[in-house]
Write a protein that binds this DNA or RNA. Structure first.
Length: 273
DNA sequence: CACTAAACCTGGGAGC
DNA sequence: TGCTCCCAGGTTTAGT
């Protein structure tokens, strides 16, 4: 699914198309994709509302409307939100179609894990999935001291800690493995065993990897597309993710693939300690 | 509290 | 070619 770099890329590519546009019509083909308070319908909630801002928190995309309401989107594994300048037919995986003054937004999701949640004005601060999130990894509240304190004494694997959205938000399986490789740290090390110098290397690697992911327009391993329907290119810069048993690009040893915290994890036995 | 498994879904790829 | 099994970018919840 879209991790932070992918969601940020979707936000940036959609913004010029949809900001200032008014929602004219909403069609929900699969009701499970659109969550909203009972007694409200998608059409009644969104019709004639203007999209005034596009935000992002972790892996959540936030569509802010002119009445203070917000549509919170989480793409999970295969969700996508694409803008088309001209109306077009969807396919079997097109669950929501939003007609704007000019053009259409299509929400598609092969696996149906993702959700669009309508949150009425003033209620965003009560949304648990957002309030639980840790700091933005590329922002200022994510500082080395904070990161070191969160990992200190932790017995859980460092890989699991990176995927824990309450410690720092936005990392998923791809960028967690890539950051660990770049920092030279084994994914199954108990988080509390990292020396401060290693925490610093990882802190830097997390921020650099995500920044490079955004610069590349995200990683298209299979389904991911940005707001224009285009693929990203960070898959060309992956060093370990999806490369199990292939030679390490740095030392040539075959990469190992193991399970850490229930997730497939690829690492180099020569470069990571 | 910490960790695991299951649940939510569909489809691609490997192996036979 | 076709069938079965395993796997996949995520998160929540139930169970041990």
């Amino acid at each position: 699914m879209p991790e932070l770099p992918e969601v940020e890329t979707i936000r940036r590519t959609l913004a010029p198309h949809v900001l200032g546009q008014t929602i004219k019509k909403v069609r929900v083909n699969w009701p499970g994709a659109f969550v909203l308070p009972p007694k409200l319908t998608p059409a009644r909630a969104l019709r004639e509302r203007e999209i005034v801002a596009l935000g992002r928190r972790g892996k959540y995309l936030l569509l802010e409307l002119d009445d203070g309401a917000t549509v919170v989107v989480h793409f999970r594994m295969t969700g996508a939100l694409v803008y088309y300048p001209r109306a077009r037919a969807g396919d079997a995986h097109t669950h929501v179609v939003v007609n704007l003054t000019n053009g259409q937004l299509h929400y598609t999701d092969q696996r149906k894990f993702g959700r669009l949640q309508y949150v009425p004005a003033g209620e965003l601060a009560t949304l648990a999935c957002l309030t639980k999130l840790g700091p933005e990894p590329t922002g200022e509240d994510f500082c080395l001291e904070y990161f070191a304190r969160k990992l200190d004494g932790k017995k859980t694997a460092i890989k699991a800690a990176l995927l824990d959205q309450t410690i720092v938000c936005g990392l998923g399986n791809i960028y967690a493995d890539e950051a660990l490789f770049r920092a030279g740290i084994l994914p199954f090390r108990p988080a509390g065993t990292l020396r401060l110098s290693e925490v610093f290397l990882l802190y830097d690697a997390v921020r650099l990897t995500l920044t490079q992911g955004i610069a590349a327009g995200g990683t298209t391993f299979r389904d991911y597309r940005d707001g224009d329907g285009h693929s990203g290119s960070f898959q060309n810069q992956l060093r370990v993710y999806g490369r199990g048993a292939q030679p390490c690009l740095t030392c040539g040893l075959p990469l190992h693939k193991v399970r850490v915290g229930g997730r497939a994890s690829v690492y180099c036995p020569g470069c990571q300690h």
